[in-house]
Amino acid sequence: MPVGTDETMGVSNGSALLEEQQETSADKKTISQLLGIIHKPRCQGAAEVSATFSTLQQIKLKLSACLDSIRGWFSEYRQLAHFFSLLCFLLVIVTLLQTFCLVQITFLFQSQSTLQETKLRDLTNRLEKLNQSYHLLFSQYPALNQYCPVSNSTTGERACRPCPADWTPQGEKCFLFSQDRADWMSSQYRCMALGGAVATVRTEEEQVFLWKKAQSLSQGDSYWLGLRSGGSDGSWQWSDGSPVEKGPEFRLHEPDNRDSRELCGRITPGDDYRRSWYISRCSNQLRRICERRQATLQ
């Protein structure tokens, strides 16, 4: 029993010893690995650090380049944004100016249109009043129809002139060459009935006009003038009572006052207007020339 016990204890002690040795060996191996890691060659660690640093540098450079690119793009974007803002501002200013101009033009046009309408209304009212006065005037004074005959029967428009119908203007006078014949006194009455008198000749222009007109109308016939021998001494007078001037340049043939009969002057067209005055008995039947002053608005 005891021997067995001793053997068993020896075996037990040997196993424990073997386990301790194995544990010690494992510990030593572990310590050796740790020491290997700790005492790893410095040159290998420096290379890895250098590679890592180089990578970091590259990353930094790329990041820097990217940031520079972003900054440049952002700067260009800011310039474009600034330009676009300025353009928008200018467009707004131009639009406002155009709107202001359109408003001013519209206002001016409306003002002018209103003013024109007011003027047109005023002129229309004045025209109506003038038409009323116009018709009233011709209804009260029918003699005006001689100077302003109706030229358009549809519209009632009149054409006014300084001389009545069939009278010819010359200077400040109107002359009428008759077609019928009468003695001198009847001719005077007939001219007076028309608002005039038998023609008097005061200027050379009147003499030339009457001579040419008589030539074109009478074909050689004579016309009574306003000449008459009515003085006690046989002197010649015009129909208005004024004496005949002596020696006008346009009259070379003086009326003869040696005849005691009642004589009157006439104009007979010939080759020379200065030799166209002649005398005849006042009872002869001749055409006549009537005269009257031209009408004026004064």
Rank of each mutant, 00 (worst) to 15 (best):
E117Q: 12
Q98H: 11
H39A: 12
K40N: 09
D122K: 15
K29P: 03
E254H: 13
F74W: 05
S229L: 05
D272W: 06
Q237H: 13
R261V: 09
Y278L: 05
S69V: 05
D256Q: 10
K173V: 05
W211Q: 01
P2Q: 14
P169V: 01
L225M: 02
K246P: 12
T118V: 10
M9I: 15
R158C: 01
Q237M: 13
T52H: 15
K62G: 15
C191G: 00
T118F: 12
P41Y: 07
T203F: 02
F138G: 02
S235C: 04
E48W: 14
R190P: 02
E206A: 01
A81G: 09
I93F: 10
S280Y: 04
P243F: 06
F100A: 13
F84K: 15
W184P: 02
Q219I: 11
A51W: 11
Q79R: 11
F83W: 15
D183A: 02
E206H: 01
N257V: 07
L35N: 07
I38M: 10
A16G: 07
L130Q: 06
S139A: 10
A65D: 10
S280I: 02
L252N: 12
L115V: 08
L115T: 11
W224M: 03
L108D: 07
A159G: 06
A46H: 12
K129D: 11
E7W: 14
T124L: 08
E291S: 04
Y273G: 01
K119T: 14
A16D: 08
Q79W: 07
F109G: 12
V150D: 04
W184E: 00
A16P: 02
R121Q: 15
I37V: 11
G270N: 04
V150Y: 03
W211S: 00
V49E: 13
G241C: 02
E19Y: 08
D166R: 11
E254D: 14
T168I: 10
Q44V: 15
D256R: 10
I105T: 08
R202D: 07
S133V: 10
G241I: 03
K173P: 02
D256T: 12
Q98G: 13
A47H: 12
F107W: 14
L115H: 12
Q140Y: 07
V208W: 05
F250L: 04
L263H: 04
N284Y: 03
L252T: 14
S178Y: 05
Q22E: 11
V103G: 14
V49I: 11
R275W: 00
P269I: 00
C290K: 00
C290Y: 00
L67N: 06
L130E: 07
L123H: 08
S239L: 06
F100D: 09
S235R: 09
S111L: 13
S283V: 03
G220K: 04
E172R: 10
T203V: 01
T8L: 15
D180L: 08
T95R: 10
